[in-house]
């Protein structure tokens, strides 16, 4: 790996399955030691992108390099430098915790003198002390995921690809998992992690929002929150919510109106309606509304706005 080069670089990366385009001209750059988050709904193309970066799928178009090696032409060199956790749990359920670690340690040729110590580290990291001889299929989800992470980092790879590592794992275990990811990043490991939990985006250094195979935004979480909405965000309680969205969409000064839980989130630009005008405006249309309250936008707000913006753009063309 040459110094200074990005750990992961993709240019125009595209994957088509017959007529379906799963990943559509994706550009990506991840610096060493970063935690890069891949955020998007299920089916957005996150797994396909990660699989191309691991050399498991041929890109249909474009190119990508990992640790300085071309993923399509030098997949074996790429595999020497990465750890990968696939979306579906893929350790051997009929082997014990220790046997799985022994296997992957052997496959990655972990130096013998440090093997025992690294196994102990992986076991304690996964919180599996005392359960070394339990069959892996008998473990609960959170332990399985942490053990899979332990297996993926046994050989100390400089780059780690984690595909939805926390899906189906209870919140407490998810927290623990992210703590582990931060500990690894502190040791200069570059990590690309995908998730469909918006709240997890906040744990990343940089995030890429992906929808329908396209990169729709990227930046640090705070950058995205600040610059992407195109106005200030207000929260308002009103009923019925559906009618309120209809009335507000396209009204002067309203950039975006969307249902957010049991409330309405409205982005107001300059000129047109102000925050104080909202209850009255809605009331004139027969909608009961409380006062509007200014809120700090969450990444979910940003994502909703970006996705609906993208849809408008697409339907316009």
């Amino acid at each position: 790996m040459s110094a200074g080069a990005p750990a992961v670089l993709a240019q125009g990366l595209t994957k088509r399955f017959n007529s379906f385009t799963a990943v559509d001209h994706l550009d990506l750059g991840i610096e060493k030691g970063e935690i890069a988050g891949f955020i998007g709904p299920n089916g957005a193309g996150k797994s396909t992108t990660i699989r191309m970066l691991c050399g498991l799928l041929h890109p249909s178009e474009g190119r990508a390099s990992v640790a300085g090696f071309d993923v399509d032409r030098q997949p074996e060199a790429v595999r020497e430098h990465i750890g990968y956790m696939s979306q579906k749990f893929s350790l051997y359920g009929d082997l014990t915790v220790r046997e799985n670690l022994l296997f992957f340690g052997g496959i990655y040729r972990v130096p013998r003198q440090s093997f025992e110590e690294r196994m102990r580290f992986a076991i304690s990291m996964a919180g599996l002390e005392g359960r070394e001889n339990a069959l892996v299929r008998t473990l609960a989800g959170g332990w399985k995921q942490r053990l899979a992470l332990g297996c993926a980092i046994l050989h100390r790879p400089p780059i780690l690809f984690l595909d939805e590592p926390t899906s189906g794992v209870e919140p407490e275990a998810r927290r623990r998992f992210w703590d582990l990811i931060h500990e690894l990043a502190a040791q200069e490991v570059t990590i690309l992690v995908s998730t469909h939990y918006m709240d997890e985006a906040e744990y990343c250094n940089r995030i890429s929002l992906i929808d329908r195979g396209r990169l729709i935004a990227s930046g640090t979480p705070s950058e995205l929150r600040a610059r992407r909405l195109g106005g200030d965000l207000f929260e308002i309680s009103c009923a019925p919510l559906g009618a309120a969205v209809k009335v507000l969409t396209g009204a002067p000064g309203v950039v975006e109106a969307a249902i957010f839980g049991d409330k309405l989130h409205v982005v107001l630009g300059s000129g047109g309606l102000g925050a104080a005008d909202l209850p009255g405006f809605l009331g004139r249309h027969g909608i009961q509304a409380g006062p509007a309250r200014r809120v700090t936008p969450s990444l979910e707000d940003v994502f909703v706005q970006l996705v609906s913006g993208g849809q408008k753009q697409r339907s316009a063309t």
Binding site: L56, R79, S86, F89, S90, L91, Y92, G93, F104, I107
Partner: peptide
């Protein structure tokens, strides 16, 4: 069983 995806991601 899905273990092949992990196996082929190794060297």
């Amino acid at each position: 069983r899905g273990t092949m995806e992990q196996l082929i991601s190794t060297p």
